[in-house]
Design a protein around this nucleic acid. Structure first.
Length: 580
RNA sequence: GGCGUCGUAGAUCAAUCGGAAGAUCGCCGGGCUUUGAAUCCGGAGGUUGCGGGUUCGAACCCCGUCGCCGUCACCA
């Protein structure tokens, strides 16, 4: 799977893994077989990452295997491009299904045979009722359904009709195959559920070979069984389907239809899904965001899709860590987005190389620095990882610093630049601001400063005659004006202003009104020369600003490098200011 | 409404057979610091939804009750 080892990943424990461990200890199975069964009708999002990590993680840790199986039983919704995108996302997450790629459509013949077996033995029948009649006859939650007039038609007749459905003799919706279970069951799903419907549609894999397609309930458990799946893990909304899942497997087994070599029935176990605060996860809403142009596409970095996160700079390791931190339980939950961001920072802090980038620059002229002098200063690439080494950064008389690192009437606790105050330029020199230059509009255009030659590299100056060492409280970053690389930064923030995107829904409002108008702020910035070599996807920290990565758009516009903000750094100064 | 889950700290999860209610993140305070980052130390935060019962002893077992969520397709 992945070479990266992470203690928090291997220390993971949850009720599902406990069940797997118990089954292994008791000898019920040698090794677990799990599966990730996406329907190829959309992009994977962070919620799917849970299921991917869960299933592949169990296989890895218990010496089993995990199948990738596309649940492609509804050709009107499914497309090949989604199959490709899903595979890319799973690999990116760090998992590999090896040769175990399957499709429910691989089993269409087997499924058809089993359907016939059930018909022959009186457990399924072709129903000619209209969809409306079927619905009406199913009854309600408080009253039992009434049997279809076709429920007891002879098996031979159903068999013949079913064959003709397959042969394409009937139009869509004219007939279905139903399991004969219990029209009075309090579980509506058992009131003779549909097994097959007629769909004259082109299937991405089987083309026009079929015009009848099995429903999820008939295809899923059977596919698990064929593949020898031991633990079929799914989300809570399938709980009511479990009796049906078990009914089909049990009946087929009783009728002698077990797949060759079958040693056990698969077991479905449900877990609770999660939501992220301030995030919409449903495919329908995500699609609306894209189609209405609220975001730039499925991989817009503000989307919760894996493709978007990859583009934004979120790493697979941080996603895996997040999923494990959240854990598994039998209830739906909403995770604070802060927890996710924290997991992203945790990984990026260890792996991202540091660079200097000045957003909203203001010019600094060091009046006592030689006009044409350029010094190369040594900067640490990553204090968290010495092996990343150092780089050389040019220093000269004219620099840029961030506008927000200067304040005219600065409070005592503002540890940055102000007239008469001294700060350290990281890896540069200590400078003291002497004068502010403004334009006619009163806008600050330049800071005139002096530097202390004894502080090269940002080091403290030697002690004075009395042995006292001068100190500075603040350190700011900078870029040499003459060497600066102009870049574009895309400052992404949360897409919604409210924790619940649907807040106020009852009052005629909907999520559209909760969108954060500042979820994307594009800014020009000045970067140190090393950023010319940045590569797409490479994790970077712009010191004191945040984590960034190069956007693929960069290649399209010559000389214009675009960096996406993955997540900000924690900012206790901003937090303190906010409290006031 | 029927059926089915689930209620433990602000959030997310633990708690062996019924035996002293914990962890992580967040929050608050402090140390260190050439990133107001990272890191280190400390702290606050709980009537285990509520009410009964069984028991020497209940988060756990029993009864009741309230609440949340899910589900009720020719989608998956």
């Amino acid at each position: 799977m992945t070479d990266e080892t992470n203690t928090s990943e291997s220390a993971e424990e949850n009720f599902l893994r406990k069940i797997v461990a118990e089954d292994q200890a008791s000898g019920k199975h040698d090794a677990p077989v799990t599966r990730f069964p996406p329907e190829p009708n959309g992009y994977l999002h962070i919620g799917h990452a849970t299921t991917v990590c869960l299933n592949f993680g169990i296989a890895r840790d218990f010496g089993g295997r995990c199948h990738l199986r596309f649940d492609d039983t509804n050709p009107v919704k499914e497309e090949q491009r989604y199959i490709d995108a899903i595979k890319q996302d799973i690999r990116w997450l760090g998992f590999d299904w090896g040769e175990h790629e399957y499709h429910a459509s691989d089993y269409f013949d087997q499924l058809y045979g089993w359907a016939r077996l059930l018909i022959e033995n009186g457990f399924a029948y072709v129903d000619d009722q209209s969809q409306e009649d079927m619905r009406a006859n199913r009854g309600t939650v408080t009253s039992p359904g009434t049997a279809s007039p076709y429920r007891d038609r002879p098996a031979e007749e159903s068999l013949d009709l079913f064959a003709r459905m397959k042969a394409g003799e009937f139009p869509d919706g004219s007939r279905v195959l139903r399991a004969k279970i219990d029209m009075a069951s309090p579980n509506m799903l058992l009131r003779d559920p549909v097994m097959y419907r007629i769909l004259h549609a082109e299937h991405p894999r089987t083309g026009s070979d079929w015009c009848i397609y099995p429903m999820y309930d008939f295809a899923h458990g059977e596919s698990d069984w064929i593949e020898g799946v031991t633990h079929s893990l799914c989300s809570l909304e399938f709980e009511a389907h479990r009796p049906l899942y078990e009914w089909f497997v049990q009946k087929i087994d009783e009728l002698g239809g077990a797949p060759e070599g079958s040693t056990h029935h698969p077991r479905q176990i449900e877990f609770g899904r999660f939501n992220l605060s301030g995030t919409m996860m449903s495919k329908r809403n995500l699609l609306a965001l894209v189609e209405e142009g609220k975001v730039a596409g499925w991989d817009d970095p503000r989307m919760p899709t894996l493709a978007a996160m990859r583009r934004r700079g979120v790493t697979p390791a941080s996603l895996r860590n997040f999923v494990n931190t959240v854990g598994m339980s039998r209830r739906h939950k909403t995770i604070e987005i802060a927890l996710f961001e924290n997991c992203v920072r945790e990984d990026l802090n260890k792996t991202a190389q540091r660079r200097s980038v000045v957003i909203d620059p203001i010019k600094v002229v060091i009046t006592n620095y030689p006009d044409d002098q350029v010094e190369m200063m040594t900067a640490t690439n990553n204090p968290e990882n010495e092996a990343d080494g150092t780089r050389e950064v040019p220093f000269s008389k004219e620099l840029y610093v961030q506008r927000e690192d200067f304040m005219e009437d600065a409070p005592r606790k503002f540890f940055r630049l102000s007239v008469g105050r001294e700060v350290r330029l990281r890896y540069g020199y200590w400078i003291k601001c002497e004068e502010v230059v403004k334009d006619d509009a009163g806008e600050i255009v330049e800071l005139r400063c002096t530097y202390d030659p004894q502080t090269r590299g940002g080091e403290s100056p030697p002690p004075d005659e009395e042995g006292k060492v001068r100190k500075v409280k603040g350190t700011i970053h900078w870029v040499s004006a003459a060497h600066a690389l102009p870049i574009e930064v895309r400052l992404y923030d949360r897409l919604f202003m409210t924790d619940d995107p649907n807040e106020g829904k009852g009052d005629g409002r909907d999520w559209r009104e909760n969108l954060n108008p500042d979820s994307l702020v594009t800014a020009a910035a000045m970067a140190e020369p090393a950023l010319a070599d940045a590569e797409v996807g490479e994790p970077l920290q712009f010191e004191r600003v945040g984590y960034f990565t190069l956007d693929p758009d960069s290649g399209k516009a010559a000389n214009k490098r675009v960096f996406n903000r993955t997540v900000t750094l924690k900012d206790s100064w901003a937090k303190q200011q906010k409290k006031k």
